[in-house]
Simulated scan of single mutants.
Amino acid sequence: MTRIFSMMLAMALLGLVPEIARAADKFESGQCMTLHNDRKDGPVKDMAVQLQDDIISISFTEWDVPNTEFQTSAKCYPQKGKLECQIDCDGGHVTVSAAPDGAWELDSSLLYSMTGSESLFAVQGVSDTAFLLGKFRVARDTQNKLCRMSPDRVFVGLAPGDISPRVERAEKLLSRLGLLLEFPDTVYDEATAEAVRRFQRQYGLAQSGIIDEPTSQALVSAGFVGTGC
């Protein structure tokens, strides 16, 4: 019985070899594939896709969402000349097909997670996840060495009187540094301004009480040192 089972397993594995070989011919491991969309094509602005062995990684940016890159990865299995890629934890899925001209066509129903730490640069509140739904065509890109997409960079300062989720993020960082004793909220009041001035004094910045771009960069950097997050 054991011998019969072993023979069946060996035959099954041998049957997979040609399919894996065909997939390797169509989907080159390590090659970066990208697309650049017009605004009329939907919310996705740019996308980079890369296959490393059996793991596909996807990075993308969205129109009107500055300072934010979304990315995810999924495990892929060859099936009938295509790649079926799955995220087990949330059921996200993408099918990858190879076009005759060498492009890849993605049919996606994946849930993507936002990467990077908390940022004070975001102009609007952004969820830590984004759905990428639909069909996308990516082409070979030999110039994108990291195979990542960089979002638009926009900075808007924070000053007393502002009410924004960005204020709460700033106050959390100030609290983490021991400079703000109040519970973080969305209101930039005098206590926030005084905490900012103390931070600016410690880091040799102009003591304006306003979170300008140099203060924001220093605050994000200092607030995450040694946090392990």
Rank of each mutant, 00 (worst) to 15 (best):
M1D: 12
T2R: 14
M7C: 09
M8N: 06
A10G: 05
A10E: 03
L13K: 00
L13S: 02
L14R: 07
L14V: 09
L16I: 02
L16C: 09
A23L: 09
A23V: 09
D25T: 01
F27N: 01
E28P: 08
S29I: 02
G30Y: 01
C32P: 04
T34C: 12
P43H: 03
A48F: 08
Q50H: 08
I56V: 14
S57V: 13
D64T: 08
N67S: 11
E69W: 13
Q71R: 14
T72P: 00
K75A: 07
Y77W: 08
K80F: 09
I87N: 06
D88E: 15
D88N: 14
T95E: 08
V96P: 04
D101Y: 08
E105M: 11
S108P: 00
S109W: 09
L110M: 15
L110C: 09
L111M: 11
E118M: 07
L120E: 04
F121M: 03
F121G: 04
A122F: 00
A130D: 09
F131M: 14
G134Q: 01
G134Y: 00
F136K: 10
R137W: 02
R137N: 02
V138C: 01
V138W: 01
V138T: 02
V138E: 00
A139L: 11
R140K: 14
T142K: 15
Q143W: 04
K145F: 01
L146W: 10
C147I: 06
P151W: 13
P151K: 12
D152M: 15
R153F: 12
V156H: 13
P160G: 14
P160C: 13
V167P: 10
V167S: 12
E168Q: 11
K172R: 12
L174G: 13
G178S: 04
G178T: 03
L179R: 02
L179E: 01
L181S: 15
L181F: 13
P184M: 08
Y188D: 04
Y188F: 12
T192W: 07
A193N: 10
A193I: 12
A193P: 08
A195Q: 05
R198C: 06
Q200P: 00
Q200T: 01
Q202E: 15
Q202F: 13
L205V: 06
L205Q: 14
I210L: 04
I210P: 01
I210N: 06
I211R: 06
D212C: 07
Q217G: 14
V220D: 00
S221M: 10
